[in-house]
Design a protein around this nucleic acid. Structure first.
Lengths: 150, 150
DNA sequence: TTGACAATAAGAATTTATCCTATATAGTTC
DNA sequence: GAACTATATAGGATAAATTCTTATTGTCAA
């Protein structure tokens, strides 16, 4: 991952903008810098607050819109599920999930499709693991068809 | 999983309520029935609309509160991430995630900790898979300590 | 430098979830 | 089976997160 001190960060960002026909604005540079140098998984609000240090006049909407743009062009990745309304799973048996990134469908996958997941012991020393799941993201059968016909 | 036609569904629900000192109300029965017989992963609003068919006077708040209660006692499982503010991951390399169900922290886990995930070919015939990830849920180091001292 | 188009700021609107409180109800006791 | 008590509910108010609208500003290319 690049860091804030990397002198290439601006050059890299310029190249990305050029590729996707985005204008290089101070706001976009600031958001790019803030999010790309984060070592956690920041929320829109966290990025907004970080950017505000140097750009007190930036609006929340700009940060939000910019993050959405960056996610669309693949500069950052929206963390699984977050941002969508809460949903409940009545199936308490061990199983896995496929998330459709277009329509939001969540499809159950059965454990015999996959190898058993072994949790490394160094991890269980630090964390209490209550559930483990394989999570696949992509386009479901229906959305994939629509995708192809674009 | 139980189905709506299962004659034991009401008996099962009564037993659960007794165990957790919850009163058996028509609203709770309706919500239980709706969510437990769902084969998708319904949102609060979806459950609300389903329950409304037979209980036109039920409030959204009751459905929401009841679902939260059911999640607390382990009758249903909140789907990973959903319901929390959107978050972004600047790390585009293959890696895995641990979600703390108490503080919401998302912690990166590195792929060499786990066996490679093979995607079954019957799955790739139906879906386009763009990302695969192992997702662990539980208590992070800090929350686990607090948990123990309760 | 200027014109065309894209991006921004600010506030309003939307969506999702929760809180508040008076009333109603379940389950127990008599 | 009636009365009691704690819990649950309805519905309006509130809060939090995100997106939309519109007037203004800024970028980049000619």
């Amino acid at each position: 991952m690049q860091t804030k001190n990397d002198p290439d960060i601006y050059t890299t960002f310029q190249a990305i903008c050029k590729k996707f026909n985005l204008k290089v604005t101070p706001q976009r540079i600031a958001v790019y810098d803030a999010v790309i140098s984060a070592h956690d998984h920041p929320s829109t609000d966290a990025v907004f607050r970080k950017v505000q240090d140097r750009h007190p006049n930036i609006s929340f909407d700009t940060v939000n819109r910019t993050l959405n743009t960056f996610a669309e062009i693949g500069v950052i990745d929206p963390v699984e599920g977050h941002g969508a309304p809460k949903r409940y799973d009545p199936n308490l048996a061990v199983h896995h999930h496929f998330h459709c990134i277009q329509c939001g469908a969540i499809i159950d996958l059965y454990p015999d499709m996959f190898k058993r997941i072994e949790i490394p012991s160094e991890l269980e020393k630090k964390f209490t693991v209550t559930a483990k799941r394989i999570l696949l993201k992509g386009y479901c059968a229906r959305c994939r068809t629509e995708q192809k016909s674009d």
